[in-house]
């Protein structure tokens, strides 16, 4: 009994210590941001590995999600004779929810896990220590540009996901199922609001980008420097990011579309 209590207490203390280290880390990383403007090359390199390499999976998924929604939406709406509203349905679902959320989940799996593994391995092979001893601060030199790249990439990827998804819905709805092309676009334009829907969707994706990248670099930096430690940290990145995305999505949706 006492032992279980102790283990609970130990876990709680551990959790709060990690939380504290995570916050200290993000403060240091943010402090390192201004210096990056003088070294754009560092960011470009990371934008490539974080953003460009996630492009394919995001665009392909976006197109398929859009197509599935076109198909499902059509079958539901046609019963009410409202298949003209297909565009609205596809666009609103993508822009408000699926775009930011699914992109963030894919981003956590593709880019987040890669970031954690990379940083964790750099730690395990003493590259981070070596940098410190070369008087190069790894937080500013390694973590800060990766964080910024993730933060920039996420909203762009989410926008691409939504845009490609709308095209996928168009392809199925208009191209294959014969929904009127004009109705698809005009109903969409009439019902999707720039501020309420698109702007809020972009804000969501920015928040997700921040959180996922934060979790990824923290897990990598805080990983136990062994192969097992790095693999566990990578798993944790994906699990924690996914939970954080879904939880935050609920909170943000409640705040925004209330």
């Amino acid at each position: 009994m006492i032992n279980q209590l102790q283990s609970l207490g130990h876990k709680a203390l551990d959790f709060f210590q990690r939380l504290g280290r995570g916050h200290i880390l993000i403060v240091d990383v943010l402090k390192g941001q201004p210096a990056l403007f003088f070294r754009p090359r560092l960011i470009i390199q990371q934008l490539y590995s974080v953003g460009v390499l996630s492009l394919l999976i995001v665009v392909v998924s976006g197109f398929f999600v859009g197509m599935v929604m076109g198909l499902q939406g059509y079958n539901t709406l046609v019963d009410f004779g409202a298949e003209e509203s297909l565009g609205v349905m596809v666009a609103l679902t993508l822009v408000r929810e699926l775009g930011p959320v699914v992109t963030a989940l894919l981003f956590a799996g593709r880019a987040g896990s890669a970031l954690t593994a990379e940083i964790g391995l750099m730690k395990a092979t003493e590259q981070l220590s070596a940098m410190e001893m070369m008087a190069v601060d790894p937080i500013r030199r390694v973590l800060a540009p990766r964080f910024l790249a993730g933060f920039i990439s996420m909203p762009l990827l989410a926008a691409m996901f939504s845009a490609v998804g709308v095209l996928g819905g168009y392809f199925v709805g208009v191209g294959l199922l014969g929904v009127d092309e004009g109705a698809y676009w005009s109903q969409m334009q009439a019902s999707v609001d720039l501020y309420e829907d698109i702007y809020n969707g972009v804000i969501k994706s920015i928040v997700f980008g921040f959180v996922v990248t934060w979790i990824a670099i923290f897990e990598g930096y805080d990983a136990i420097p062994t192969s097992e430690g790095v693999s566990r940290a990578t798993t944790r990145t994906v699990v924690h990011s996914s939970l954080a995305i879904l939880g935050l999505d609920f909170i943000l949706t409640a705040l925004m579309f209330n």
Binding site: V52, L156, A159, S162, V164, V192, V202
Partner: peptide, 23 residues
């Protein structure tokens, strides 16, 4: 590639604003 990526992202945002919404 990064240039293309950023341009495509901005184009997607622009498309969402102009083509999908009521801007």
């Amino acid at each position: 590639w990064v240039g293309l990526f950023v341009a495509a992202g901005i184009a997607a945002l622009f498309m969402l604003a102009m083509q999908v919404s009521n801007l």
